[in-house]
Amino acid sequence: MSATAEPAGPLTVLLVDDHAMVRSGFAMVLSVEDDIEVVGEAADGVQALERARATRPDVVLMDVQMPRMDGIEATRHLVAEELGHVVIVTTFDRDDYLFAALEAGASGFLLKNAGPEQLLDAVRAAGRGHALLAPEVTRRVIGKMTGGDPAGAGGPDRPEPAGLAHLTAREREVLVMLGRGLSNGEIAEELVLGEATVKTHVSNVLAKLHLRDRVQAVIYAYEAGLILPAED
Rank of each mutant, 00 (worst) to 15 (best):
158 R>Q: 12
148 G>R: 00
142 I>L: 11
141 V>G: 01
156 P>R: 03
158 R>T: 13
139 R>I: 01
162 A>E: 13
158 R>K: 14
149 D>W: 10
173 E>G: 00
161 P>V: 00
147 G>Q: 04
159 P>L: 10
164 L>S: 14
169 A>H: 07
169 A>W: 07
160 E>V: 13
143 G>A: 14
159 P>E: 09
143 G>K: 04
145 M>V: 15
142 I>N: 04
155 G>A: 12
166 H>M: 15
168 T>L: 02
164 L>F: 06
163 G>P: 12
156 P>A: 09
164 L>V: 13
141 V>A: 02
173 E>Q: 09
168 T>N: 09
139 R>V: 03
150 P>Q: 05
160 E>G: 15
148 G>W: 11
157 D>S: 15
172 R>E: 08
160 E>R: 15
142 I>A: 14
171 E>S: 10
173 E>Y: 13
138 T>I: 10
165 A>K: 01
165 A>C: 00
148 G>M: 02
159 P>C: 10
142 I>W: 12
162 A>Y: 12
153 A>L: 03
161 P>H: 12
154 G>L: 03
144 K>T: 06
140 R>F: 02
169 A>Q: 12
163 G>V: 09
138 T>R: 14
163 G>Q: 05
141 V>I: 08
151 A>K: 06
173 E>W: 12
160 E>M: 15
160 E>Q: 15
153 A>D: 00
168 T>I: 04
171 E>K: 08
141 V>E: 01
153 A>Y: 01
138 T>C: 01
160 E>Y: 14
167 L>C: 13
162 A>G: 13
164 L>G: 13
147 G>T: 04
138 T>N: 02
147 G>F: 05
149 D>A: 05
146 T>S: 11
157 D>Y: 15
149 D>F: 10
143 G>T: 10
163 G>W: 04
169 A>I: 04
167 L>H: 05
171 E>H: 06
142 I>R: 03
154 G>E: 02
152 G>Y: 07
163 G>F: 07
139 R>E: 06
164 L>A: 13
170 R>A: 14
150 P>L: 11
170 R>D: 08
158 R>F: 08
167 L>A: 10
154 G>C: 04
162 A>D: 12
161 P>E: 02
153 A>N: 03
154 G>W: 02
169 A>D: 14
161 P>D: 01
145 M>I: 14
165 A>V: 03
144 K>C: 09
138 T>L: 08
148 G>V: 03
169 A>Y: 07
158 R>P: 06
172 R>G: 06
150 P>F: 11
159 P>A: 08
139 R>F: 00
156 P>N: 06
141 V>K: 00
139 R>T: 07
151 A>M: 11
154 G>Q: 03
154 G>F: 03
143 G>F: 13
169 A>R: 11
163 G>Y: 04
167 L>E: 05
155 G>D: 12
144 K>V: 04
143 G>C: 11
